[in-house]
Design a protein around this nucleic acid. Sequence first.
DNA 1: TTGTATGCGTTATCAC
DNA 2: GTGATAACGCATACAA
Lengths: 332, 332
Amino acid sequence: MAGVKDVAAYAGVSLGTVSNVLNRPERVSPATRRKVEQAMAELGFVRNEAARHLRSGRSRTLAYVMLDAANPFFTDVAAGIEETAESGHFSLYMCNSGQRADREAGYLAHLVEQRVQGILVTPIDPEAPHLASVARRGTPVVIVDRTTRDESLCSVAVDDVLGGSLAVEHLLDRGHQRIAFVGGPESIGQVRDRLVGARQGLAAAGAPDITVIETLATTVREGRQAGERLLGLARAKRPTAAFCANDLLALGLLQQVVASGLRVPDDLAIVGYDDIYFAGAAAVPLTSVRQPRHELGRRAAELVLDEADNADHVHQQVVLLPELVARTSTLG
Amino acid sequence: MAGVKDVAAYAGVSLGTVSNVLNRPERVSPATRRKVEQAMAELGFVRNEAARHLRSGRSRTLAYVMLDAANPFFTDVAAGIEETAESGHFSLYMCNSGQRADREAGYLAHLVEQRVQGILVTPIDPEAPHLASVARRGTPVVIVDRTTRDESLCSVAVDDVLGGSLAVEHLLDRGHQRIAFVGGPESIGQVRDRLVGARQGLAAAGAPDITVIETLATTVREGRQAGERLLGLARAKRPTAAFCANDLLALGLLQQVVASGLRVPDDLAIVGYDDIYFAGAAAVPLTSVRQPRHELGRRAAELVLDEADNADHVHQQVVLLPELVARTSTLG
DNA sequence: TTGTATGCGTTATCAC
DNA sequence: GTGATAACGCATACAA
């Protein structure tokens, strides 16, 4: 593969001139420049980023290590990151940990070795020490969609407690009093926060406490099973509305309810969380709590870039606000 | 940031020894090895991949330039690629062109400069000359989920004509005779092929021709609009079943049908295409033509790796077979 | 405006 | 088993 040296020889100029054409074209006469460009084209010259980067010390790429590429929520966050990256002339590499700690660690290590400008990550465990240790070794790290107690790291997240209250307040407004919460396990901080918010909303309105249908994961399958349990309750005590910890659960619940011949929202109103694309695309469009996904990504990318080239960067824990999107599943 | 040199100084050994600890640990005595490893830990030493790669000429990463990261179909393909990559100890970088030609070109250029081992790409235009030109410049390229006439490139795709026949045969088996095809624009090769297959299936069975409801894109929104048009037809001539060019269209159609108070499959049976996760998760689980997504990714990754390190690699155009997954939307 | 020389951090080859 | 040294491809400071 042709290098600058080959190009120089082919064009009959010196190596330095070729480099100038590449990096400071204004300093070279139009004639030689054309000659060199011609040579590059004919030889199929491609800059060697490794060498260039070794020399200059820094790369023009950011990376996002996502928790689950199959979850549309994260791809939307990635799109937000990409917007910021692109406007700063950075490329974005996405890596998928797929919820596996070993993969997350592997990618992190690889990216640090690559000396990327910054790493955005939605970690499996936001308190895991290896995150801060990456940052300490010199690669800026920003936690996305999770909070961390570690103040040596920036993070951008959304207020889940508020989101929980919004969901419940909406249901109360629609006249529901017996409300179920579908979600779990409680070891997931976000699930916990959404439930806490829901309870706060109920308490503030003096309504009865929520019925918790705990799930083992936040998946469609678990949503279906929660639906079976919910519909198995005696009619008189069965909740008239369900608030699900995310949209996958809500879609599963919806499926189960429809399969049972009941109607949404007449027999059961449903509120989801995340407002993924498929929430609005469901047969009964789902009311959902929307997180500002693009902004989540954009802010995180801005923080990581700031940390990378602003000497007096201060770490921040940004918290964004969710918003309720009302659709047929609660409005009828 | 500490380099091998610093580690050597700190450990009181020479630079070559540090390198040996890193690359051929068996050649160094346990005692010095521990000393060196200790030094590395204390200094927070991280290999510089750029230098390493410059020296060795090759990197351990693959990249997948995807057409649309928000479409779950492609993230599933990516997961298949990742399986193969991982088992070969490669890292996978995913880039999202988001259907934009400039972004695709930008990522391709960046990746070639990075000298990645191979590039997998689902291109906007599989005949675009820049794809082959990347390959000619020395980075193996494999086209994923598209075919190309260019025989200097490998590709892995799925037989869409067969998929179209499968869908229609299933509907004929269920007793449908008046069938609609929802999809478009016909400029998309895959849409065209699926329609061709559908027509072949009908012709083979001596059934009447298909009613084409052409859409401007393969999105949920367009599916809804197609639904309006379909339901606007006089009852007597209205098709009793619809075959959609992809699942997004099918989900939109389903939404419209349900919103109109009609029932699936009683009033209208629906078959989608791709079998994305949300097809099975829909309120009325969708029958769909499944493409072997993981295998698509795996085979493509295998091809790109073979091209990268097998001197007598021969380019291949692999075509995989789709399969029909029957669910409630046609079975009732 | 163009050419020359040096170094980026690592690996590999060869003496020791 | 260990240490010195050249080379990878490029960018830059400086000399011409």
